[in-house]
């Protein structure tokens, strides 16, 4: 069955409508979800795993989970794109640490006021996030990088950087709060 590749424009259905159709096992709707978020999910997994094949495996699994169990994402408690990215990042970290998945999709709850369904807004946000992270103090960037993309625990980061545990904790908190404030501004 071939589906037309979707173009992102203002006529695209919102995530809520898409999910409603995915619940009804509408394959065309799932194709739209793939086109909208597949690249984003793949890019996060690739950044962590640095292996295109493994990154694709993660992307396929995450999106297939959504197909099988769309109700795991509860509307109103975050953006679908953000939720998929968190699942992909966590699964990729589980893989590099060779551990069983540490959380189920139902456990991932996040607050996000961003509209990732709109390609325009998504691109603006991406630029903004890159800019904010680039301008964080170097130590905060390093701690965030080690925790988020390399999956190190705070004690492993402290050991690697030679910093105190409390310092590592504070840096990660400040980095996240800094990102929150900058995006809200």
């Amino acid at each position: 069955m071939a589906f037309e590749r979707t173009n992102h424009n203002e006529q695209d259905p919102g995530d809520d409508l898409l999910l409603e159709r995915v619940r009804g096992k509408d394959q065309q709707a799932m194709a739209v979800v793939f086109d909208r978020y597949g690249g984003m999910v793949y890019s996060v997994a690739l950044r962590v795993l640095k292996d295109p094949e493994q990154a694709e495996d993660v992307m396929q699994e995450i999106l297939f989970q959504l197909w099988k169990k769309p109700d795991a994402f509860v509307q109103g408690r975050g953006s679908l794109g953000g939720w998929l990215m968190v699942l992909a990042r966590n699964r990729a970290i589980d893989l590099i640490r060779r551990r069983k998945p540490t959380d189920s999709p139902d456990d991932v709850v996040l607050v996000s006021k961003t509209n990732l369904a709109s390609e325009t807004e998504r691109n603006v946000l991406m630029e903004k996030v890159r800019d904010v992270v680039k301008n964080l103090p170097v130590e905060q960037q390093r701690s965030l990088e080690l925790a988020y993309f390399e999956g190190l625990s705070h004690s492993e980061i402290a050991e690697k950087t030679g910093d105190a545990l409390g310092t590592v904790k504070t840096r990660i908190r400040l980095a996240l709060i800094g990102l929150r404030k900058a995006l809200a501004a």
Binding site: L110, T114, L144, L179
Partner: peptide, 29 residues
């Protein structure tokens, strides 16, 4: 925690964006 999880999710948005590998869309569908 949900607020901070949302913040953490945004970190992933800053990674360089790549096209999905050739054929992966077909494989998924």
């Amino acid at each position: 925690f949900a607020e901070l999880s949302g913040d953490a999710a945004m970190v992933g948005l800053g990674v360089p964006q790549h096209q999905v590998p050739a054929g992966s869309r077909t494989r998924f569908l």
